[in-house]
Design a protein around this nucleic acid. Structure first.
Lengths: 126, 126
DNA sequence: CAGTATCCTATTAGATACTG
DNA sequence: CAGTATCTAATAGGATACTG
């Protein structure tokens, strides 16, 4: 997990937003949860393809801290933890779709390297 | 300037978009150029407050490569170079404003640490 | 003036092993 | 199962000096 020594100088709302859903994994996590609604930790990791636990757990913590996703823990054995978007989290989805739609015109898929979870995204863009 | 060894796995339009205007400086540069229209290198650096040449020049190169800004060089002495948003660059401004508007509800300014160039942004949010 | 070149640090991301 | 603890690697970002 990562922890900056200096508390990150976020100096305007725009920078705050880009920090909340920027980075390599956060937007993917939000997209997957937007589609699947509720996922257990292991299912979420499977959807992400190639993320490691250290990185996934770190990203989830930040998303929880920023109020984007909610974590619900069931005290069972074996343990069960479910993740889903909060209302705030759901409110960023249209923004991500807007970015996606804007980029769609410029980012032509080389077909060898496209995310499965973005087929939904492409569908919405038609 | 920075140059990744592996060519960055951008796997969907969303990731492309976040790459184009994400990072610490790119969105600021776009905002400043959206407001000032055309700026020389030195004026742009002045607007950014605390950016170094190495970092500014690197960010500008990426923005040019991605077609967001245009560079016009006048062969004078002393040299003059002007930067401005391309049409593609102008088309991202509404997206940045959307993010800004979304974040505005959550990012409460601590007033000690707010960007000058975001006063315009705040103005638009009223 | 408008950058490059070089070196350095901080942060992000990844690999691997381990645990309640 | 759902993580944490460590360690390492890659990269974004920064400081400083220099140049056509």
């Amino acid at each position: 997990m990562y922890q900056p020594k200096t508390p990150k100088d976020i100096r305007c709302p725009l920078e705050y937003g880009l920090d909340v859903f920027g980075g390599k994994w956060k937007s993917r996590i939000i997209c997957v949860l937007a589609e699947k609604d509720t996922l257990r930790y292991s299912a979420l990791r499977r959807e992400m393809t190639n993320i490691t636990d250290a990185v996934l757990a770190g990203a989830l913590k930040e998303l929880i801290r920023d109020g984007i996703i909610e974590r619900k823990q069931y005290d069972e054995i074996p343990p069960r933890v479910e993740y889903r978007l909060s209302e705030k989290g759901k409110s960023v989805v249209p923004i991500l779709q807007t970015i996606c739609r804007w980029s769609g015109a410029y980012h032509r898929e080389d077909s060898t390297n496209t995310l499965l979870q973005c087929q939904k995204c492409d569908y919405h863009l038609k």
